[in-house]
Each structure stands twice: as structure tokens, then as C-alpha cells.
Computed example of a mutant assay.
Amino acid sequence: MFSHVMVGVSDFPRALAFYTPLMDLLGVRLRFQEDDVPWIGWESSPDPRPLFIVGKPFNGAPHQPGNGHMVAFQAATRSQVDQAHALAMAHGGVSEGEPGLRPHYHAHYYGAYFRDPDGNKLCVACHRAE
């Protein structure tokens, strides 16, 4: 369905310090990094798309997080959701919802919500029974 999703940031080195360990934890493979642009992209597996890209806005204007926008990453286990939330907090993230079941979505939805250091809202969710 998606070709790629891009999240704008204001401080690229800070974004790298936040997103790199998160993508590593989730097992998402690095596809490219161009510090001079600056942007970085991770690819899905086994296919090369969709891509998740983090970088400075292309138009050169300052980054501004949107209200109502969120990117959700799929985790393989509930433990991975817990780890991702803790990792995000350790790297400058702000919690928007502790890890836990959210049965109003479905019986096995286990998710955590947080914002990156630029205010972009993210989620990590596991859809499997424990």
C-alpha cells in the first residue's frame, strides 16, 4: 500500500541517535544514509518497500510536527513493544501512552505511544496474542 513514509526533523544527528537504535531493535534494515542531504532510510524485509525515511524537510523550511499524524511500527512481541518504549524514553522521547493492551482496538492489540525529540508521534504495536 505504501511506497514510503517520511518524518521531518530539525536536528539530524539527534534524530539518528533516536531512530537508529529503535530500527535496530525492530529489525528494520538500513537502506541508505546521506548526511549531506541530510536523510536516512530503512527498508522493509524481504521487499525493499515500503521505506521509512527521516530527514530535514526538502523545502528547507523548519520542521513542524503535525497534529493527528502518527507512524506506527509493528513489533514481533509484546516484549519488543516494552523495549521500544524504554529505548525511546532513553533517547529523548516523550511518552504518549505506556505499553499495554488496548482492547478497544482488538483483543490482542498491545502498543506504546511516544513522540520523538522533534515532536513526531510514533507507535510500536504487537497484534499477536501473548
Results as ranks from 00 to 15, higher is better:
L16A: 12
A17T: 02
A17I: 01
A17K: 10
F18Y: 14
Y19Q: 07
T20F: 04
P21F: 06
M23N: 13
M23S: 10
L25M: 05
L25S: 03
L26M: 10
L26P: 05
L26I: 04
G27Y: 05
V28F: 06
R29N: 08
R31E: 11
Q33T: 05
E34T: 14
D35H: 08
D36R: 10
V37L: 14
P38M: 07
P38N: 10
W39N: 04
I40S: 00
I40Q: 00
G41H: 09
G41W: 04
W42K: 03
E43P: 00
S45F: 10
P48A: 13
R49N: 14
L51W: 04
F52Q: 01
F52H: 00
F52S: 01
I53C: 06
G55H: 03
K56G: 01
K56A: 11
F58N: 04
N59F: 05
N59E: 11
G60K: 13
A61M: 13
P62M: 08
H63P: 01
Q64W: 00
Q64R: 14
P65Q: 06
P65E: 06
N67H: 12
G68S: 14
G68E: 11
M70R: 13
V71A: 12
Q74M: 06
Q74T: 07
Q74S: 08
Q74N: 08
A76L: 06
R78F: 06
R78N: 12
S79R: 13
S79T: 15
Q80W: 01
D82W: 01
D82I: 02
D82V: 03
Q83P: 00
A84K: 01
H85M: 02
H85K: 01
A86P: 04
L87Q: 07
A88E: 00
A88R: 04
M89P: 01
M89L: 15
H91Y: 08
H91C: 14
G92S: 10
G93N: 00
G93A: 02
G93M: 03
S95A: 12
G97I: 09
G100W: 12
G100Y: 12
L101K: 06
R102Q: 14
P103F: 01
Y105C: 13
Y105D: 11
Y105N: 12
A107N: 14
A107C: 09
A107D: 15
Y109Q: 08
Y109R: 07
Y110T: 02
Y110N: 02
Y110R: 03
Y110I: 02
G111R: 02
A112D: 05
A112I: 05
Y113C: 03
F114R: 04
F114L: 02
